[in-house]
């Protein structure tokens, strides 16, 4: 029965959903072993409680001002010390920006195997066997590592179901001190600018994306409107980003974000192979394009051949009516 550590990625006292998905993966792999959630930050008491609700047996928490902002140095030093002391069989984190950095760093500190950004994983014959997409999702690879020493894993957002939280669940909470003091940390955070109206694309269950055909920054208005009605996030193609219509943070595709929502509505998106690399695992793809021969229709379940400036407002109105908004 493996003992599993799960690092819970949080920002400002709110955990990223992928952290709960990681606890679900840990529960399955532990197969009766102990699942320990690791919560680092400042003012993270609520995250500690939720980690237990989502299925952790116990929590190791480090609540300290030096950990308020994620910085790799103090986070990696702490995680590596805990791994060296407790020798878990598996360490899992979400493949978020921070998770990718931290879990990789700790794997290097421990000279251990890393299975990164996996979309499926199981324990089998003393090994962890995982699948991960490569070549922009055009190929699926199987990777494995022996459980004879700690194996580190990051899990892709939305690839695994999050467990149902149970508010009756409790568990032991072990509070530990940080490893590095502020004067030992060379990285300093000197500024932060929150992305306005940010809905994290990789966590979004609905994404409405505009392509080159939106034509201007103002042209994104109907895209945003539909995203708002659906409670979704706004995506963009590289062409729209490079044309300066919308910031890079919204880009989906090869040189942007890789997303996997339940519903992906592509408006005025031709559907280049590089764009498909970022969204082809979406559950339902809807294409709206004037050109009936646009490649996007080849991977969509539903399509409307038409002008996005007419179709999107019509969709927003129809959804508003149905959803009572």
């Amino acid at each position: 029965m493996p003992n599993v550590f799960v690092w819970v990625d949080q920002f400002g006292g709110r955990a990223l959903p992928v952290s709960w998905e990681a606890i679900g993966v840990a529960r399955n792999l532990a197969d009766g072993g102990t699942v320990t959630a690791l919560v680092f930050g400042s003012g993270v008491g609520n995250v500690v409680t939720l980690a237990l609700h989502y299925g952790a047996d116990r929590v190791i928490a480090c609540d300290d001002a030096t950990l308020a902002d994620f910085r790799l140095e103090p986070y990696a030093a702490l995680l590596s010390k805990l791994v060296a002391e407790h020798k878990p069989d598996i360490v899992i984190g979400g493949a978020s920006t921070r998770g990718r950095e931290l879990i990789a760093a700790a794997a290097a500190d421990a000279d251990s195997a890393l299975l990164a950004d996996v979309t499926d994983i199981k324990a089998e014959g003393g090994k962890l066997v995982a699948t991960r997409p490569v070549y922009s999702g055009k190929v699926i690879s199987t990777v494995e590592a022996a459980l004879s020493r700690t194996v580190f894993v990051t899990v892709r957002s939305r690839a695994f179901a999050a467990p149902e939280p149970n508010s009756a669940r409790t568990g032991e909470v072990l509070n530990v001190p940080p490893v590095l003091s502020e004067d030992q940390i060379t990285t300093k955070v000197v500024g932060f600018e929150e992305t306005k109206g940010a809905v994290n694309l990789t966590d979004a269950s609905i994404i409405v994306t505009g392509g080159r055909a939106v034509g201007s920054a103002e042209g994104f208005a109907p895209v945003r409107e539909l995203a708002d009605v659906l409670g979704g996030a706004v995506g963009a193609t590289r062409a729209a980003v490079d044309a300066g219509y919308i910031p890079y943070a919204h880009q989906v595709g090869q040189t942007g974000k890789v997303v996997s929502p339940n519903l992906y509505i592509a408006a005025g998106v031709s559907g280049s192979i590089q764009h498909q690399a970022g969204m082809r695992t979406s559950k339902i793809i809807v294409a709206i394009n004037k050109d009936p021969d646009a490649p996007i229709f080849k991977i969509a379940q539903y399509g409307i051949v038409g002008d996005l400036f007419k179709v999107l407002p019509a969709l927003s109105a129809a959804f508003r009516e149905k959803l009572g908004k």
């Binding site: 066997v129 190929v139 590592a145 080849k298 969509a300 379940q301």
Partner: peptide, 17 residues
């Protein structure tokens, strides 16, 4: 320590639009 053991083509996206 982490070995790639196999490659496969992803399942095709089902059906026509």
């Amino acid at each position: 320590l982490a070995h790639v053991t196999a490659y496969a083509n992803p399942p095709a996206r089902g059906g026509a639009v």
